[in-house]
């Protein structure tokens, strides 16, 4: 199960809506082993594409260096699909490289840049196997 606070949830949705029709991407880092998504980090989609995302290689390096220095790990890796459902594609599955992360997918296909609900779903992707999990949104992460 993914437990995420409302502000972080809203930030992910806002990013996805803002970048629509291109895919948006980022991570939520948290202390190693804590499973707490605490630090929202919006990333630039270097592919700038409606059907593909990729973190810029220099930004990726900086991000991992920062997380390493803070004893953090990527608790959530998120991206949006802008014309299809919020379910991992073959590409998402093939490239998933963080077996410990919650892979969050947001679909903006219904309302695009506008107000309105989005699909927000979370998965584990390990060795090519996808397992959907429940998402619980809380006001604040428990202490």
């Amino acid at each position: 199960m993914l437990t995420i606070d409302q502000a972080t949830y809203d930030a992910i949705v806002a990013h996805a809506k803002r970048d629509h029709p291109d895919e948006a991407c980022g991570v939520v880092a948290g202390p190693e082993g804590s499973d707490r998504p605490e630090r929202f980090v919006e990333m630039v989609n270097a592919a700038g594409s409606p059907t593909f995302y990729e973190f810029d290689s220099t930004d990726l390096f900086q991000l991992y260096k920062e997380m390493d220095a803070n004893d953090e790990e990527p608790v959530v890796v998120y991206h949006s699909h802008t014309a299809t459902e919020a379910y991992p594609s073959r590409t998402d599955i093939g490239l998933a490289s963080e077996p410990g992360a919650h892979y969050v997918l947001v679909s903006t296909r219904e309302h695009g840049n506008n107000e309105g609900p989005v699909e927000f779903r979370s998965y584990r992707i390990v060795d090519g196997e996808v397992t959907e999990e429940e998402v619980t949104v809380v006001d604040e992460l428990p202490r």
């Binding site: 895919e23 991407c25 990333m43 059907t51 593909f52 699909h81 594609s89 073959r90 590409t91 490239l95």
Partner: peptide
């Protein structure tokens, strides 16, 4: 030397 897998994906079908 640091090795990092790309963080990438997307709805596009093909793996580039």
């Amino acid at each position: 030397v640091v090795v990092l897998p790309a963080v990438a994906g997307g709805s596009r079908y093909a793996l580039a």
